[in-house]
Structure formats: C-alpha cells, structure tokens
C-alpha cells in the first residue's frame, strides 16, 4: 500500500500545481507529470495496456499539443503569457463542496470495495472485448479521430 501513497501524494501536488501555477508553461509540465503518475496508478490497478496508452497518447500527444499552442500564441503576441485566476474563494468553496458530497456518497455506500480477480489471461480477454463485443464503438472512434484531425486542420489554417 505504501507504493500507492508514494505515487498518490506527488500526483495530488502536481495537480494542484496545474491549477495554481502562474506560469502557463510550468502548468503544462505539471500536467505532463500528473498524467505519467496516473499511468503508474493504472499499473498498480493491473491495467497495464491502459497505462502505456496513457503515456503514449496523453503525455506524448496532449502535452506536446499544449506546448505547441502556448508557443504559437506567445509568438503571435510576442510576450510571455501569464495567467491569472479569478474568484479563488468561490471556486474553492464550490469544489470543496463537490468533494465533500463525493466523499459522503463513498462513505455511505453499502458496496463491497474489495478486489475481485480479473479473468485469466487479461490481454486475451481485453482483445476479445475490444474487437468482438465493443467493435462498433471502436470503429466509430476511428471515424471520430479522422473528423477531429480534419477539423483541427481546417480550424487552425491561416488563409481560407
């Protein structure tokens, strides 16, 4: 269990850094660290495939995209983008209220939270689920990704 806390405490600290840091670029670096640590949490939960997908897609894709966007907007304006926050007290009250409600439900639930074993040969079961049971959502997702790529190119193009 100690290894969970070793990952979870830095994870929460990095997440706080993402929402509190004044420097947008630093926020992105913290977000990258948060996503890598989340991948480690997935490894602890025996979701190895998901952990590696997380590192490939999120850390490789999303963090790089965010850095690109920050660099581009900085270059156009020609000055560093700092970011301010507003309504810190109201935001803190609202998010703490949501947190309390969530923990209240967790505490009052009658569920048995102990772990039940995964099927033998996890990867085989995952593949069967993905390509037999859920093959339609999988294919729809590939179309969605294509639409997103085309949409992003059309949106970000300079001359139209």
């Amino acid at each position: 269990m100690w290894i969970f806390w070793l990952i979870a405490i830095p994870l929460v600290l990095f997440a706080l850094g993402v929402v509190l840091s004044k420097n947008l670029f630093r926020s992105t670096i913290y977000l990258g660290a948060t996503l890598v640590l989340t991948a480690l949490i997935y490894l602890l939960l025996h979701a190895e495939l998901l952990g590696f997908i997380q590192i490939l897609l999120y850390t490789g894709g999303v963090a790089t995209l965010l850095v690109f966007a920050i660099m581009l907007t900085q270059r156009i304006v020609g000055e560093d983008i700092t970011q301010q926050s507003r309504g810190l007290v109201g935001g803190a009250i609202a998010s703490l209220a949501v947190l309390l409600i969530l923990f209240f439900f967790l505490g009052s639930s009658q569920l048995d939270f102990s772990v039940r074993p995964y099927p033998e040969n996890l990867n085989l079961a995952l593949g069967k689920n993905l390509f037999v049971t859920y093959v339609l959502p999988f294919e729809v997702l590939s179309v969605l990704l294509l639409a997103a790529i085309i949409g992003a190119i059309v949106m970000a193009r300079r001359d139209r």
Binding site: A15, V19, L24, I81, Q83, G87, L102
Partner: peptide, 12 residues
C-alpha cells in the same frame, strides 16, 4: 475537485 477548481478559477 482540483480540476473543477481550475475550470472555475482560470481566466486563460
């Protein structure tokens, strides 16, 4: 909750 806080307070 941390993410919700960020969404509510960030201006950027």
């Amino acid at each position: 909750s941390i993410g919700l806080f960020g969404v509510l307070t960030r201006r950027n």
